[in-house]
Nucleic acid binder design. Structure first.
Lengths: 254, 254
DNA sequence: AGCTGTGGTCGACAATGTCGACCACAGCGG
DNA sequence: CCGCTGTGGTCGACATTGTCGACCACAGCT
């Protein structure tokens, strides 16, 4: 049995390394970072380059990620059934709530944003599709951790770094937060990830009633909150959206 | 010399195959499509799955692209210098022109959209970042083919399929179109790709004065055109934007 | 010049990935 | 109900394939 293909694992490690570092990396950097021989690293990089997964700056010789990854990532979105179903509903959610709407799924130890609808005003906003958010501090992450067992263990085992003064970091407090989310059917993030920013999210279920993702909205705490709580109207809008997407996926009535 | 790593090339072929087909593919489909033994294919797929590049539907056993590709594709955008410089200028372009703005680069035989600013109204629009456009019929593609020698040979060798009745397909006509683009410094697409849709684009240069991409706008022909020509105001806006981005990249004055 | 770094090449060696037969299971039709 | 045919998946022998580390050419500093 060819357990796992070594060269592929190494290629993946190289890609992740290039994705992590802000700027381009040289051949020697890559080789030493992964503990590989230069020749080996060069062979992998050359092949990755030929396939378009990696590009090389002709003058400096440094390597960076390639365009083919963007194209394939886009194709991933096309195939994604959850995202396809959620497109129209999240659009309505952003419109009715007046805030940016997000759709996230569990990926490794975080939430991967697979859809993002801009807040419906003319402000300049950057698209966050493909970005990762922490499980322990965001509304999307808490929802996943509360309702998806896999996400729960990832969140429990992972580190809970304090991103603001309000971030929940201890295991007991975090479990209490998840318990509350399970009881209420939704989760909130009150300046626990970014100062001045709050979010609400609710789970999306598939036809087997298994949680497959979370939808939510994020916005300035002054707009999203009323006192120390999320505005009830927004909570209702998010939950309605999550139910609508779940129904589209075949989860039936609740 | 380890020419090219076979297993990596095969893995890339599998990913492209999965990206091409609309729906998920089974192990046997993949193996027969690529002419590989099932065992070999399974080994590659298993590794790709472990690395997150491929996901497997637990019930049907079919394979599809994985979330890690989206994450890496997003990282590619972060590193992309051209895109980073263009962010603010394309935003202004969309605002001043009232149309959707695009930034594209050459990738294989087409234009890869690396940035897309929605038309500034409340209509529902789908993000096209990561999508590909043809070189021979779109304004972005013509600009690249006219100014970038590599793009030119790709376009000349590639097939020019007629997407509408107005698509330029013969080699002579196409070269004339490119000559016009070089003379004017910009290119147009008057319903040559989609019925009722027109676009304008201009080239972006880097610090070595080499063309590295193209910016442009796309919109309904009634709004973008005046008679049989693009509105002069929009052409000027696109060219200004292209110059601004080029200047940001260090191309200096023209 | 000479040093030290870079990316890149080469060839020997064996670890590695490949192949094709084989297995367990599921769905279908007789 | 039972084989048939399809699926995804496993296994072990074989040799192809990728790996290693020394080596090369070049560039930028001392």
């Amino acid at each position: 049995m060819p357990g796992h293909i070594q060269s592929l694992e190494r290629a993946a490690a190289i890609l992740r390394l290039l994705a992590g570092g802000e700027r381009r990396l040289g051949l020697s950097d890559v080789a030493s970072s992964l503990g590989l021989a230069k020749g080996t690293t060069h062979g992998i990089l050359r092949t990755l380059q030929q396939e378009g997964f990696v590009e090389q700056d002709p003058v400096s010789g440094k390597y960076q990620l390639g365009a083919e990854l963007l194209r394939l990532g886009n194709s991933y979105l096309d195939v994604h059934e959850l995202r396809a179903r959620a497109l129209v509903w999240t659009d309505d959610l952003a419109r009715s709530s007046g805030e940016a709407a997000y759709l996230g799924v569990l990926h490794q130890q975080g939430v991967l944003i697979v859809h993002h609808v801009f807040r419906p005003d003319d402000s300049r906003q950057v698209l966050e599709v493909g970005a990762m958010q922490p499980l322990h501090s965001t509304a999307l992450g808490k929802v996943l951790a509360a309702f998806d067992p896999v996400a729960h263990s990832e969140a429990a085992e992972g580190e809970r770094t304090a991103l603001t003064g309000r971030t929940v970091t201890t295991a007991e407090d975090f479990e209490a937060v998840l318990e509350l989310a399970r009881a209420r059917g939704w989760a909130a993030d009150l300046e626990e990830t970014w100062e001045g920013v709050a979010s609400v999210a609710a789970p999306v279920y598939d036809r087997r009633r298994m949680p497959v993702g979370a939808v939510g909205i994020t916005g300035a705490v002054e707009r999203v909150c009323e006192g120390t709580e999320i505005r009830a109207r927004l909570v209702a809008a998010v939950r309605d959206c999550a139910r609508a997407v779940s129904r589209d996926l075949g989860a039936g009535r609740f």
